[in-house]
Structures are given as structure tokens and as C-alpha cells.
Design a protein around this nucleic acid. Structure first.
Lengths: 137, 137
DNA sequence: TTTAGTGCAAATGTTTTGCATCCAG
DNA sequence: CTGGATGCAAAACATTTGCACTAAA
């Protein structure tokens, strides 16, 4: 049973940040941005809100290779299929989900009850690739 | 340039554990198993070896939803396509990679230089599913 | 008023690092 | 011998938790 929630300023700020983001954000990034609007906000408040929002399905949570988590507002980049730049960590949405078919096969095989999946393609975005090795070799 | 490595007992123990594993292992699991063979081994030694082995391509590293990392010996379960049980955390290899085609399309589009990818399907393995909700509904 | 939510600090848990010592080559 | 590797402890991070206090309903 969901307990009743209060629309606190902090929660509004966090949701606002996530909704305006053009890419998922880490708790630290959210915290930094939130402090601009609400200087007294505590990091733990950010974490607690992200957790409860996730339980409510208002945001989606994922995890980066370095162990940091990231969050996106539901309906935005909420499908957890990304291209992630190893350099700047910016995440772009994948144009399609390549797993659905496979998921169906697994369900039919009956040895595993699928609830969810994650697809993350790593590499370098155009900008960061330029800095290192050119995209066009 | 790779610096020359020494075949220490610790490194042998760690590689042995990973090669015998039937599923990727977390550093803590590796450390525990390693202590059985080499009681004086330090956790930091496990981490340092795993890191250097990964750089050499001897092992592959991934990350779980809870932020813990995991490792598998190259050639074993080294492709980073898994079905991960949310209950017991056991990981099974996916029967096929559903991303290759998509990866090729991204490469052709030219906006992202792909180096690597991860596919993780979450859910419950047969045993754990039994404990909660039956696989056959 | 009531109590969910907050801020702050302390506690966790994982991974990293500094350094004196050790041992494989 | 020599310097790469180890063990130990401390430090660095991300995240969680306890608790008194604040503020939304």
C-alpha cells in the first residue's frame, strides 16, 4: 500500500530537473542542480526522493559501468536502452529495442521469468570521438 | 606498454577460481574463495589483480543493478549477455546476442563509435521463481 | 495538529590508495 | 639483487540510516 505523499518543494525541484534533462542524470548531478534552486537541500533527500519516485514508477533507474546509478523521468528516456559515451558519460536513447524477440523466446523456454532488461552500448559520441580517434578512419 | 607481470600465487588462485566458476563472480565472492586457498590474501590484491587482468583482456568485467561489479574469465562467460536472477543473483548466459545488427546500424549512422555493449535480462530463475510466484500461471 | 519529509551527521559497503615489506624473475 | 606485487590500514566514493526538527495537508 502506498502511503500518502506530500508535494514538498524538494520533490518538485527534483522532478523538474529530471523532466528538463535531455539525458539521464546521476544523483550527484541532480543534487548539484537542485542546490541551485534549493540551497539547503540534502543529498540524502535527493536519494530518498529518487528511491520513492522509482517505487512509484515516476522515474526509472539504471546503473553505469563505474557503479554510479542514474535516473530518468518516466516517459522521457525511461526505457533503459542507451548509447553511453565512455568519455563524457552522456547517454542517448537507442533507436529501437533489440531484445523483445529474445525475451519472448526465453519466456517460452520457461526456465526464466523475465521482468525487465537493460541494453547499453558503450563507445564515444561524435564530440568525444573527435578528441581521441576520428570517427572516420 | 604492458609492464612485465609476475606469476604470483595470488594471481594463479584468482584465475583458477574464475575459470572454474559456472557464473561470473563479484570481488567479494572471489576474495572469500581465494582465502580458502591463500588465507593471507588481501582484498586489495584481489581488486588489483582483477583490474590488471581486465586490462590485459584475461577477464571481463560487468556491473550488477546494486552497483557491485562482477568478473568472468575471458572465453568463459565473457560476452556480457546475461539473464540475472533478482533473487539469487546467479547469472546465465544469453543464448544469442541481439545487438549486433543494431550495433552495425549505429556504426553506419556515424554519430557514435561503438566499442562495446552489455545486455542484461532481469527476472527470476526457475528455482527462485518457485519460491515466489510460479513460472506457470 | 499530525506525521511524512527534511537536514545533518554518522554508518555502510565497495573500491582505491599509500607505504613498508616481500618475493618472482 | 630489483622492482613489481602483496598485506594492511587509511582514504575515497556512493549510498543508507538514525534522529531531532520542519512543514505540508
Amino acid at each position: 500500500m502506498l502511503e500518502k505523499t506530500r508535494f514538498t518543494k524538494q520533490k518538485q525541484v527534483i522532478m523538474g530537473i529530471l523532466r528538463q534533462a535531455d539525458s539521464p542524470l546521476t544523483p550527484s548531478e541532480i543534487y548539484e542542480q537542485a542546490r541551485a534552486q534549493q540551497p539547503s537541500i540534502a543529498k540524502s533527500t535527493v536519494y530518498r526522493n529518487l528511491e520513492s519516485m522509482q517505487e512509484r514508477g515516476e522515474v526509472v533507474r539504471g546503473i553505469l559501468e563505474n557503479g554510479e546509478s542514474f535516473f530518468a523521468a518516466a516517459g522521457e528516456h525511461a526505457h533503459r536502452h542507451y548509447m553511453i559515451c565512455k568519455d563524457c558519460n552522456k547517454m542517448q536513447d537507442l533507436p529501437e529495442c533489440p531484445v523483445e524477440k529474445l525475451e519472448k523466446e526465453i519466456a517460452e523456454a520457461g526456465d526464466f521469468l523475465v521482468t525487465d532488461h537493460v541494453v547499453q552500448i558503450y563507445g564515444y559520441c561524435r564530440d568525444c570521438a573527435k578528441k581521441h580517434r576520428p570517427l572516420d578512419t
